[in-house]
């Protein structure tokens, strides 16, 4: 999946996460994480993010995560939505997401 524009998904409500993805052609993945539970769940959030990026074959992207204590399933859903929007894809691979 190739990110060609800015894609945003999610909100800043409690238990949600807002994820913004931007293109980063040829420069790999860069994740910037802000979270109200960074100390407790920071590593887990990064792990979930990387797993989904791999799953969707995203190789280059700037990813900004503003987490307000979202569960893993929420993070995955928001990230997938942001990536599909950033890639301008509306054909969803339901097997993967």
């Amino acid at each position: 999946m190739k990110i060609i524009k800015t894609g945003i998904a999610g909100t800043l409500e409690s238990s949600d996460v807002m994820i913004t993805v931007r293109s980063n052609s040829g420069k790999g993945i860069k994740i910037n994480l802000q979270s109200t539970v960074k100390k407790q769940f920071g590593k887990q959030i990064i792990k979930v993010t990387n797993n989904l990026l791999k799953e969707l074959s995203v190789e280059d992207a700037l990813i900004q995560i503003n987490d307000i204590g979202a569960l893993d399933c929420t993070i995955e859903a928001r990230l997938a939505a942001a990536l599909y929007r950033g890639a301008e894809q509306s054909e969803y691979d339901w097997e993967k997401i």
Partner: peptide, 10 residues
């Protein structure tokens, strides 16, 4: 089960 296991605060 819902939130996962958190890392201990240092």
């Amino acid at each position: 089960k819902i939130v996962g296991k958190s890392e201990p605060i240092i």
